Amino acid sequence: MNFENILVENNEGILQITIDRPTKLNALNKATIEELHVAFDDAKEDEDVKVIILTGSGEKAFVAGADISEFSDFSPEEGKVLAAQGQAKLFDFVANFSKPVIAAVNGFALGGGLELAMAAHFRIASDNAKMGLPEVSLGVIPGYGGTQRLPQLVGKGRAMEMIMTAGMIDANQALQYNLVNHVVSQEELLDFAEKLAGKIMRNSLVAISSAIKAVNANYETGVNGFETEINEFGSCFGTADFEEGTSAFLNKRKADFPGN
């Protein structure tokens, strides 16, 4: 697929996916969501991709929201379909992705942009980042998982305040809220993300995939996260990565994980 709204570059196992609509502050439209889905789907099957860094082009915005013009005249039923399809195609797809996804939040992450960042496995931000869910100022609510993931990350009270006021918080406040893990300068952001990705890649990506499943299970209704952890823990014992990891530890050498 030839992408028009995103840029994709693999650098030694680190796949950088950049939302590239600078004149629209990288706003998410239907075409961009589709392209992001395809890029992630391709990365899922690509053995050369180990970690994904998701960011926005330019210095002003990660993603400044959804493209409101695409759904301003929707009916209630069309609105439900929009949310359901978006969650399945991109936001839940990213949250449950089997490979680590780091959101490098540069500038504005508003509405669907913050929801996309929250779907990543963790977030780092530039010191000029601004984050918020302004949907109620438009007479609607977050529809791409924002009402669920924000409370999980920052707590119910803070999430309620952010959603109800439709206000923005800056990077340092996001760090205080545990919405992001680190704040660095704009110039350092991608280098810092790559350093984190490098640390991740030194470990067993098979085990990391199991860890992602286990952690996410705690947030799924009707799923016993402890049981998922037990099952994933047991499955690790049947992998070549476990054999290599334990052998390397016992023989006091660096592990060279085969990735299966």
Rank of each mutant, 00 (worst) to 15 (best):
D41E: 04
E35I: 00
V105P: 02
G238P: 06
E45M: 05
A66R: 02
E188A: 08
G86W: 08
P151I: 09
S247H: 11
F3E: 09
P134E: 05
G198E: 08
E59V: 10
K30R: 05
I53S: 15
E115H: 08
P134L: 01
K213N: 12
E78V: 02
R149K: 13
L138F: 14
D241C: 14
L110V: 14
L196I: 10
G145D: 13
N10L: 11
F91H: 14
A84T: 09
A120R: 07
A31T: 00
G79N: 03
L36Q: 04
N5D: 09
F233H: 13
N218D: 02
G107S: 01
K89G: 00
G145P: 13
A211E: 15
Y219P: 00
L133C: 14
F257N: 05
A166Q: 12
N128P: 00
K24P: 00
S57Q: 12
N172W: 06
D41S: 08
A255M: 07
A125H: 01
E135P: 03
E34W: 00
P142A: 12
S69Q: 04
L7G: 12
L28F: 04
L150Q: 07
A193D: 03
Q148I: 08
A166Y: 01
T55C: 03
T23Q: 11
I124V: 10
N218H: 11
I230E: 10
G86F: 08
A119W: 04
G139V: 12
L110S: 08
K213D: 13
L36P: 02
K99R: 14
F91R: 10
V51C: 05
L25Y: 03
A159N: 00
F237M: 15
G79Q: 02
G198N: 13
Q16W: 03
S98V: 10
M118I: 11
Q152R: 15
A103K: 08
L25S: 13
D170P: 07
N5E: 00
M1R: 03
D191Y: 08
T246N: 06
H37V: 00
F257M: 11
F71R: 06
D48T: 05
L190T: 03
M131L: 15
G132M: 13
E187P: 06
G65K: 02
L179M: 15
A193H: 07
A217L: 05
I200K: 03
N2W: 01
A109Y: 05
V63F: 07
F62V: 05
G245Y: 04
A120P: 01
G198M: 12
I212F: 12
I230R: 12
L175R: 05
M131G: 02
A193N: 05
M168L: 11
L90Q: 08
A174R: 09
K199V: 03
A171H: 03
P22C: 09
S69F: 11
S209M: 02
K99Y: 05
G145Q: 12
I212A: 07
K156Q: 13
I53E: 12
A31M: 02
L90G: 10
V8Q: 09
L28Y: 05
H182M: 08
E232V: 13
